[in-house]
Every structure is written in structure tokens, then in C-alpha cells.
């Protein structure tokens, strides 16, 4: 048995998680890209890696060769890659704009939508 594929996926996930946990906005967004790669690989592997011929029929044949790969996960992953990329672009632009507006690249500094008063803020308590 070979652990190459699970190892590759685990590495992608670990690196992606580490980057997204960062307070730095840019690292966070890149972490999403790496994490996305891992997830795409995972989806792909969930179709089982057995036969490795591309799921494309030979000219003249009217069915897939016996050793062809599972086409369904490939179709899913293909669209996932493109959509993931579009959202990554959006994330980058969003992060850039946020960093501009907040004059900080620290994710913890983005508190414009948090209730006022910071972390020690006490929510309203029922009247006695």
C-alpha cells in the first residue's frame, strides 16, 4: 500500500490550516488556496484511485476502456477548482480593501461590525 496520496492531502490541509489560523490577512487568504487544493485532492481521491487511464473513449470505441478512471469526481473537482479560484480572487480583493480601510493587515483589528466596547464588553443585562 502507498501513503503518497493521503500524505499529500494531509500536508495540504495542515499547511492550509496553519496559514488560515494566522492573524495576517494575506496569509489567511493564501491558506484558503492551499486548503482548497487539499480539499480538491480529497474529492478526487474519494472516487478511488484505481485504474489510471483518462475517462476518454478511444476513437472508434463506443465505451470507456476497462482501466479508465472514475469520471464523476473529476467533473466535480474541475468545476470546484474554477469556482474556488473565483472566490479566492474575491477573497484577495476583499482582504486588500479591508486592509486599506482598516489601515491594518491584522485580522483581529477588523472589528467594525463587532459590538462597541471591545472584548471586555458586557452585553446588556436584564433589569433587576
Amino acid at each position: 500500500m502507498s501513503l503518497i496520496v493521503p500524505l499529500a492531502i494531509a500536508l495540504c490541509v495542515a499547511a492550509g490550516v496553519y496559514l488560515t489560523l494566522s492573524r495576517d490577512l494575506f496569509r489567511m487568504v493564501l491558506g484558503l488556496a492551499v486548503l482548497g487544493s487539499g480539499v480538491n485532492l480529497l474529492l478526487f481521491a474519494s472516487g478511488r484511485l484505481g485504474p489510471l487511464a483518462p475517462p476518454i473513449m478511444e476513437a472508434g470505441a463506443d465505451a470507456l476502456a476497462a482501466g479508465a478512471a472514475n469520471p464523476l469526481p473529476q467533473a466535480l473537482v474541475l468545476t470546484a477548482i474554477v469556482i474556488g479560484f473565483a472566490l479566492l480572487c474575491f477573497g484577495l480583493v476583499l482582504a486588500a480593501r479591508l486592509a486599506n480601510m482598516a489601515r491594518s493587515e491584522d485580522a483581529d483589528a477588523l472589528r467594525a461590525t463587532e459590538p462597541p466596547g471591545g472584548e471586555g464588553h458586557k452585553p446588556a443585562v436584564l433589569e433587576p
Binding site: V5, A33, F44
Partner: peptide
């Protein structure tokens, strides 16, 4: 991060998914 992406593309290419690799 690009290295990670290219790495997974290589894996796609040699695991029967040329479409994915190109993408």
C-alpha cells in the same frame, strides 16, 4: 502556495485526470 498547486496538478496528470491537471 503555487508549489502546492502545481504539485496537485502533477498528481492529477498522472492519476488519469488530464482535464483537472490542465485546469
Amino acid at each position: 502556495s503555487g508549489l502546492v498547486g502545481y504539485g496537485s496538478a502533477v498528481l492529477f496528470l498522472f492519476a488519469g485526470a488530464p482535464d483537472l491537471a490542465f485546469t
